[in-house]
């Protein structure tokens, strides 16, 4: 006999079956090789920094949800991404308590006060990183070299600095390729950069692994390919043009592409869906702005690295980029604003 009650729902009755937490989970998968390589090249230090930042993000997200009596949003994985990304932008011997503070700030200030996932204007990891940069300018620019022989047994003293104490950095600290270029005029070889044989932030080193993670997400249709392509292309073209004009003064475009956080920024940070435009044309403009600004800051400003500020600035104007984009609706001839 047929049952009497039926459920009803609104059409459509089938779905693509890919949910927001699937996308976030896959971003985490794509980031894991980067984390492994960071731990491999910088040893225990990097692992501890990344772990602490991630833990701070997840705990903060959970607590804030509890405090506002909402169901926890930890299982959408977005806090994990913020934590991993933040950890990957910090120097390997960064004091852990500072990394923790960064994680709390990223979630609370970068995301929560805007209304949580989907409403944040900026990439939360970069908000955290910017605040840390301002608060701890020395610690965040003290690098140490990759592939130290004792990296799996020795933990830097600076890591365990007590909160609000002056960190004690080990004697061996290295300059990043970008600051070496900026302040001493030395450029590292592209191969060294591409495979992470240099000092830098934990995750800013192996461009190849980062690019592979990006390709994975693009192949699964979980990331806009337009953003990394636009960022890298515009950075390459601008630095290439400068290099052609005066190769003694300006570094090669390959050096620019593979050094610092450009690859990590282009692939994993600029592509944060929430803080980037929604229209295809908007994505190109947005990526182009990031690429060009990065090169401009690297070459003409007092800072060695400009990816972070470029992305934050582009985040801020991304809704306006979409507003500028006009498009035509089917069956009409006039272009209207897209958003």
């Amino acid at each position: 006999m047929l049952k009497k009650t039926l459920d009803i729902s609104s059409s459509p009755h089938i779905y693509k079956g890919r949910s927001t937490d699937d996308i976030m989970k896959n971003v985490v998968w794509a980031l894991l090789p980067v984390v492994f390589f960071a731990s491999y090249s910088f040893g225990l230090n990097a692992l501890l920094v990344i772990f602490t930042a991630t833990l701070a993000c997840v705990l903060t997200e959970h607590l804030l949800c509890k405090l506002s009596k909402k169901e926890t949003t930890v299982n959408d994985y977005s806090a994990v991404i913020t934590g991993l990304l933040l950890g990957l932008t910090l120097p390997p011997s960064f004091p852990l308590w500072m990394a923790f503070v960064g994680g709390v700030i990223g979630i609370a200030l970068g995301k929560y006060i805007f209304g949580g996932l989907g409403y944040n204007v900026f990439n939360p990891a970069l908000v955290a990183r910017a605040v840390l940069q301002a608060a701890f300018p020395v610690a965040i620019t003290t690098w140490h070299p990759a592939f130290l022989p004792d990296r799996f047994t020795n933990i830097s003293r600076s890591i365990f600095t007590w909160p609000f104490m002056q960190p004690q950095f080990d004697a061996i600290s290295g300059a990043t390729p970008l600051s070496a270029f900026k302040f001493d005029g030395i450029t590292a070889s592209t191969a060294e950069l591409a495979f992470g044989q240099i000092s830098g932030s934990t995750g800013e080193t192996c461009a190849v692994i980062i690019a592979l993670g990006g390709l994975y997400l693009i192949a699964r249709n979980m990331m806009s390919w337009r953003i990394p392509v636009a960022v890298l292309l515009s950075a390459f073209v601008l630095s290439g043009a400068l290099y052609l004009m005066d190769s003694a003064l300006y570094p090669s475009p390959f050096f620019m592409l593979f050094s610092g956080g450009l690859m990590l920024g282009a692939v994993f940070m600029a592509t944060d869906m929430v803080s980037s435009p929604i229209t295809p044309v908007g994505l190109w403009i947005y990526g182009g702005i990031i690429g060009i600004l990065t090169i401009v800051i690297r070459i003409w400003s007092g800072l060695p690295e400009g990816v972070m500020y470029s992305i934050l600035l582009a985040n801020a104007i991304s809704p306006h980029i979409d507003t500028l984009v006009k498009h035509r609706v089917y069956g009409t001839t006039k272009k209207i604003k897209a958003t």
Binding site: H13, I14, Y15, G17, S19, T20, D21, I23, D76, G115, G116, L117, G118, Y119, S224, M273, V274, S276, I278, T279, P280
Partner: peptide, 13 residues
């Protein structure tokens, strides 16, 4: 599709 939890719009496009 019962497990389809509603998330905020993540502007994925």
């Amino acid at each position: 599709n019962q497990s389809s939890k509603i998330y905020p719009c993540i502007k994925c496009g």
